[in-house]
Structures are given as structure tokens and as C-alpha cells.
Amino acid sequence: MGWIGEQVDSIKSIQFRQLLTQAITLGMIVTSALIIWKGLMCVTGSESPVVVVLSGSMEPGFKRGDILFLHMSKDPIRTGEIVVFNIDGREIPIVHRVIKVHERPDTGEVDILTKGDNNPGDDRLLYARGQQWLQRQHIMGRAVGFLPYVGWVTIIMTEKPIVKYILIGALGLLVITSKE
């Protein structure tokens, strides 16, 4: 009887250890992704260091599904730069080019007007009611780098949530069933 008991114990302990290892591996994956994201936030100074282009308003430069890397520095904003801005009452940030800048001498306060390269007119129609200019606090960052197509992954996942669940489920299953 003692021998069987030993065997059962050893099996139990093996399974427990394996389970623990898998849980730790999963945790490592999740936390390292989080570390990379938060690290990018620190380095770039922007609250969302990477954005996906959702509309064709900057074509042919940026197409839907392209990825932009943002940088938020203290440098003043100038015409021609591509900035990402948030409008009060609008959830999704917009990526457009600055076409006008008026900067005050002492305070450094700035009035900015933007336009999408592919749009016929400027962005005043997109701004909040009665808003003529963007100020510094609306700007989330300026685009410094570009990577094509990669953003399609997130676009597909947000528009077809089922794909997301299938992917997460499959990955989870893979992690759990895999042995070394």
C-alpha cells in the first residue's frame, strides 16, 4: 500500500509543479508585454506610444492598418508635423498634419490648425462645436516612425471580436497543453 501511495503522491506533485510552471510562463508572457508597453510610454513620453491608422484621411502616406510610432517631447509644434490629437467629446484620436501655427511670445501657448492630406478642407469641421484651434493639451504626440500593415491585426480583432476570442483560446490551450 505504501508503494502505491508514494506513486500517487509523486504524480500529484509532478502535475502540481507542471501547473505552476505553466502559470508562471503565462504570467511572464503577460508581464513582459506590459513591461515593454510601459517602457515605451516612459521612453516616448506619450500615453499611447503606438497608434493604428483607422481612416484613409492621410493617404497615400498612411493607409488604414498602418502603425505609427509617437513621440511626445517638449519641442514646439511646427507646421508640417504629423500629430495625434484628441478632441473633447470624441473617443478616437485623429492623426493629421499641422498646417497653421500661431505661438504666443511669453507663455508659449499655441494655436494649431490641422488637415488630413487626403481631405479637401481643414479640420475645423472635426473639432468640437465652435472650436477654431487646437491647443497643446489636445496633442497626444507627433508621429516619428512608420510600419505598414501591422495594425491590421488590431483592426480585425476590434471589428471581429470572435477572432480575438478564438486566438486567445487557442494560445491559452497551447500554453496549457505544451510540455517543455
Partner: peptide, 9 residues
């Protein structure tokens, strides 16, 4: 006098 820099595209 109002603005130290005006840039108009």
C-alpha cells in the same frame, strides 16, 4: 506683436 511665431501653410 501678439504672436512670436506665425506659420501659415
Amino acid at each position: 506683436s501678439k504672436n512670436s511665431l506665425n506659420q501659415v501653410s
